[in-house]
Design a protein around this nucleic acid. Sequence first.
DNA 1: GCTGAAATTATACACTTGAATAATTGCGCG
DNA 2: CGCGCAATTATTCAAGTGTATAATTTCAGC
Lengths: 209, 209
Amino acid sequence: MTTRRTFKREGEEARRAALIDATLDCIAAGGPQAATVRAIAVKAGVTPGLIKHYFDSKEDLVAAAHETLMTRLTEASAASLDDLPADPLARLAGFVANAVTPPVVDPRAMALWAASMQLVPRDAAMRAVHERTYLAFRNRLEAMIADAMRETGKPCDQATTRSLAIAGNALLDGLWIEASVLPDQFATGEMRSLAIRAFGRLLDLNLPE
Amino acid sequence: MTTRRTFKREGEEARRAALIDATLDCIAAGGPQAATVRAIAVKAGVTPGLIKHYFDSKEDLVAAAHETLMTRLTEASAASLDDLPADPLARLAGFVANAVTPPVVDPRAMALWAASMQLVPRDAAMRAVHERTYLAFRNRLEAMIADAMRETGKPCDQATTRSLAIAGNALLDGLWIEASVLPDQFATGEMRSLAIRAFGRLLDLNLPE
DNA sequence: GCTGAAATTATACACTTGAATAATTGCGCG
DNA sequence: CGCGCAATTATTCAAGTGTATAATTTCAGC
């Protein structure tokens, strides 16, 4: 007679979080098709049936995982703000450098981001999440740009600031992607100074490296 | 007694191409997990077994499809070069505008691109394809940038040109992504002039809109 | 310690998946 | 026309999928 595996009762929040993390791990490691209920359960140290107990369906779990991912990416860049200097120019330079170097630059995060981008065009809920997090990031960048321009006596109108934020955001996105996916293409530290210089040219500001 | 479905013999190239197109259609419509051998066969107007006849495995077919996708994206942007003016500044502006407006901007292409980016970190063959196509695009951009700088009497050294090409490429990538995934965020024509202005600031050139 | 309810595991099921094999058909060549 | 081979279809199979349900275990409250 085989004995049942022993288990411990965890709180609902802990279990949901563990299942979500396990889902993200699976997707990062092998793409969406690798995130099967069984693989997720193994990674979470749990039995497949438990997924059904905490989520109505696997689809629900995946949606929750993507929401968590997006929130984390946004919060990660927000957290770094606390460690940046108060001087607008240095602050902006630090923000830029942070966005294009590890740990923000990370193949795993990149793979997860690509997986979620893939869902955006055909999933309204995912699109809403993306739109919200995108605008949050861009608006934060816009505020820092406005501060920097004002600081250097080159204030610009709102439309220009908006355009610069859109372009600056795109620049950071593009550099983040390439640094994450082809890390060997760039020498150590090259991406950092490259990004700061490019951002400085975009704003016509002399950002401190 | 049920009669067999009638069929026609197509050439090998035609069948392979049809299967690859069907695969891309499936991935674009429903993500990688929707690209099952049966769905692909239906879309190609063929029986699942035929896939095995032309490709050793489904994995091989998917790899071939991604190679085709990447090549097409690169060739699409190359084709537009023929229609651009010879003047370096106007040429660069046209290239930029082309990259951030339809038909290059396209939710379907974006979804396919995301699907393939997702494979890059864990598939060496995909990484090689990405690296090759990325460098081809960037080198083309670098040459145009060098021409434009020389034209305006602001020649710059090779390292600077390289940096500007990397940043310019990132800027175009980022704008392309956002325009493709959140088309409603930008007014008609806004993305185009925004991109040209931002690119002009990056290079410190007055690009004609 | 008991007890009961909730959490967790175990089992079963219907379905889909990719692949392998056998049966048939189209069609170039004589 | 008919032969033969390769292209294509049809069928089958084992493995894996998500989910539903039943059986067990944990643990808080008495």
